[in-house]
Amino acid sequence: MDAVLTEGLHKSFGEVHAVAGVDLRLPARQVLGIVGPDGAGKTTLIRLLVGVLAPDRGRVALMGHDALADRAAARGLIGYMSQAFSLYEDLTVQENIRFFARLRKVPATLRDQRAGRLLEATRLAPFIHRPAGKLSGGMKQKLGLICTLIHEPKVLFLDEPTNGVDPVSRREFWEIVDELRSDIAIVVSTPALEEAERCDQVALMSGGKILAHGTPDALRASLDVPVWELEVARPFQAAAVLGQTLSEDAVQLFGDRVHVAGDTDAEALTALLAAAGHQSVVRRIEPSLEDAYVRLITRGQR
């Protein structure tokens, strides 16, 4: 059974078509990453999927239950951590967990078993008596996750969970996802493409529509041109030189390297740069998800 299935999902706010015809299918025990620019409709889509917003048209089924008609059953099967997910700052870690367990009607013995395991996995066990307001950002986010998981949902929705989270906490967060992914389906939105690479499936969203949907490998393979990586001493200047001859969208800085997506070859690129006084090493690479993203989104916006 599919964890998430949508058909022709539409949602407008006044003149803005936030979600403009989305068909998605996510099998059980898969991780779906939703990426796209600000205002693409990611948060609205997630809110439609979890049933806190009603679509203008279309439907959502969660583990076979209609998100609206069969709301009670659907709600019991999902966990949802929104960007504004709030803990009770004056309650301790343990009190927060107990509060959310009571909301979800989890029996005390089950609750304590699960809480123990989750606290262990998130390394929050030493802090159960600390008020949530006194936790670091990364710890709060992990406590939010525990509270979201306490009723053992079958589908977990996370709206930009790693925003502003430091690399250590982010790594711990993805370790938790790795442990969960064999049991439950996860839908996660993120602005970070290196995180999207860790998902089973990725949906690129822009202007309320899904521009592309598939495994990270499939999205990379969907690029219609080869990608070249250039090592140069002054990448910013080299990119400017290349951008004058090739189209500007085709030339992208990747830190201290330059990527060119286009039907060219290593000799042509090396010669172009040499003419402007740049020595370079050029090689063809397997495109990254970010290469695919930049090309698909800039085309979609045109």
Binding site: V35, G36, P37, D38, A40, E160, N163, G164, P191, A192, L193, F236, Q237, Q252, L253, E290, Y293, V294, I297, T298
Partner: peptide, 24 residues
């Protein structure tokens, strides 16, 4: 100080192009 927290990939790219211009 963490200038790009929560900013999408294309805006981040535009931002860093600006930073490189300033450096130039």
């Amino acid at each position: 100080d963490e200038p790009t927290a929560g900013v999408d990939p294309l805006s981040r790219r535009a931002f860093w192009r600006l930073i490189h211009q300033l450096k130039d």
